[in-house]
Design a protein around this nucleic acid. Structure first.
Length: 475
RNA sequence: CGGGGCGUAGCGCAGCCCGGUAGCGCGCAUCGUUCGGGUCGAUGAGGUCAUGGGUUCGAAUCCCGUCGCCCCGACCA
């Protein structure tokens, strides 16, 4: 049995990560071993995103893990933002290095340097590059997947001729992330813009998708930055325009990381374990044969093999659990590991030409149904789809019912104190935003892109505000 | 960096106060049994007790130091 979410969410999360076999602790502080089952979820993320990146004209490349320390310093805000969490190599090959190398915390700088050489003319633009990589940030507090010292991600880096083009790229990638979250991971994230305090170090504007986890804390699930000309100026990324004038590029960067695996766990998991959204689940259907005698074993196995072959032929990811354990043990085991559909087949099914399909998202008898073996492929496909939508709907209901509108400072404090997200008109300063954080622990998660429009008084200052902000405690 | 906890079998822990040469549960292996919601039994394998030093005839246990990891905060994807 796992610690119930209601008792200690954090403890629940840790237990799930290890017991569902997603990851293991490593000998290195803050670093985890991503085990095959967890890595397969990441591969699902990766494969989907990679396809979308390529469809939208991006190409993959790979840049060095090490970055000359001086590069980081070329963009003032950037170095200030990242220097506290850098790992720096000062000795290599038994000798002290002339210039220390930082292990990349992100690659704007070294890619910016490359871009400055690659780009000469407006004909070279837009330049659309992505890299799949590991990065290192020496965070003070780590948690499996959500914040590890080393993590995997993709970082897109692009250069454009105009601010409008850069902004369009930034939004396009944000939309792809949101598409992934909603339609693959069944996470109803909210798209929005970061406040000045929360934006990426060195960016002009940062956009984010924010998701509500099972404990109502917010998780920044991906970000997309319009870097303006900040990095172009710092790294001399210039092009010659059609009019033969030298101009600075407008650049963007955007990323999603292995953090999303933690987000999936915390969005969907329950007290029986993990619940994986079907489209990212490494195993979509686990087949459990049921039998008593030798004759039954061969009969059931044979029929099951046939069904599984059919399902696999249709592109469904099926695993047969033929371990020498009792069915009950297997049910619990696969529920812990979050497999969306369990297919049971036993002697009774052979007689009736049926199988049992059990849904992970609907507990107990209610989620079980007998289905004819004829048309099993379509039935399973439909069921996986139904499960996806049901999980999305559940998460959406949960998110919506835990966001409260606030109109005054007192109301705000109560709402945050009670663990909800607060939504309210905001015209406060950066200072006042920091004050709120100090006072309640909540930060502006974003200014949602979806705004009501018009004006209303700021809940804190009473001044006329032209936009609403979402506040929450965050991971 | 502040606060707390923990290092003993693959995992989770007991033993330590009151020194005498290591034990329980799970897991693992083999055999049998069971099998539509965590079967049951038998046998067996597996440990430099984190590490350095000290006290002692004798240290997992007492004393001093070191290292590491985890959890809670501040920093952050």
């Amino acid at each position: 049995m796992v610690t119930p979410q209601s008792e200690d969410f954090s403890k629940w999360y840790n237990e799930i990560v290890y017991r569902a076999d997603l990851a293991a602790q490593s000998p290195v502080r803050g670093c985890i071993i991503i085990k095959p089952y967890g890595y397969e979820i990441w591969e699902a993320v990766k494969n989907w995103l990679d396809r979308r990146f390529k469809e939208t004209g991006h190409q993959n490349a790979y840049f060095p893990l090490f970055i000359p320390e001086s590069y980081l310093k070329r963009e003032a805000e950037h170095v200030e933002g990242f220097s506290p969490e850098l790992a720096v190599v000062t000795i290599a090959g038994g000798k002290e290095l002339e210039e220390p190398l930082v292990v990349r915390p992100t690659s704007e700088t070294i890619i910016g340097e490359a871009f400055s050489q690659w780009i000469q003319s407006y004909r070279d633009l837009p330049l659309l590059i992505n890299q799949w990589a590991n990065v290192v940030r020496w965070e003070l507090r780590t948690r499996p997947f959500l914040r590890t010292t080393e993590f995997l991600w993709q970082e897109g880096h692009t250069a454009h001729t105009t601010e409008a083009d850069a902004e369009a790229e930034t939004m396009q990638m944000l939309d792809i992330y949101a598409d992934f979250a909603w339609n693959q991971a069944a996470m109803p994230v909210i798209k929005g813009r970061k406040s000045e305090n929360e934006k990426f170090a060195g960016a002009l504007r940062t956009y984010t998708i924010e998701g509500m986890m099972g404990d109502k804390k917010a998780l920044q699930s991906a970000t997309s930055h319009n870097l303006g000309q900040n990095f172009a100026k710092a790294f001399n990324i210039k092009y010659l325009s059609r009019e033969n004038v030298e101009e600075y590029c407008w650049t963007t960067s955007w990323g999603m990381s292995t953090r999303i695996v933690g987000g999936i766990v915390m969005t969907h998991g329950d007290d029986k374990g993990l619940r994986l959204p079907p489209r990212v689940a490494p195993i979509q259907v686990v087949a459990v044969p049921i039998y008593k005698t030798e004759t039954e074993i061969s009969a059931v196995t044979e029929a099951l093999q046939r069904i599984v072959k059919e399902l696999r032929g249709a592109g469904i990811r099926v695993h047969i659990d033929d371990r020498d354990e009792t069915p009950g043990f297997k049910y619990n085991d696969w529920e812990m590991r979050g497999v969306p559909v369990r297919l049971e087949m036993g002697p009774k099914d052979l007689e009736k030409n049926s199988v049992v399909l059990a849904r992970r998202d609907v507990p107990g008898k209610e989620g079980k149904q007998f289905v004819s073996q004829d048309g099993i492929v379509q039935a399973v496909k439909d069921l996986l789809d139904t499960i996806h939508h049901h999980m999305l709907q559940q998460a959406q209901d949960f998110t919506q019912s835990n966001i409260q509108d606030v109109h005054s400072h007192d109301e705000f404090k109560q709402v945050i104190e009670a663990g909800y997200w607060a939504r309210g008109w905001w015209a406060g300063s950066n200072e006042q935003e920091r004050g709120i954080k100090e006072e309640t622990g909540a930060t502006i998660r974003c200014f949602p892109l979806d705004q009501p429009g018009g004006n209303a008084p700021c809940f804190l200052t009473g001044q006329t505000a032209d936009r609403i902000a979402l506040f929450a405690k965050a991971y």
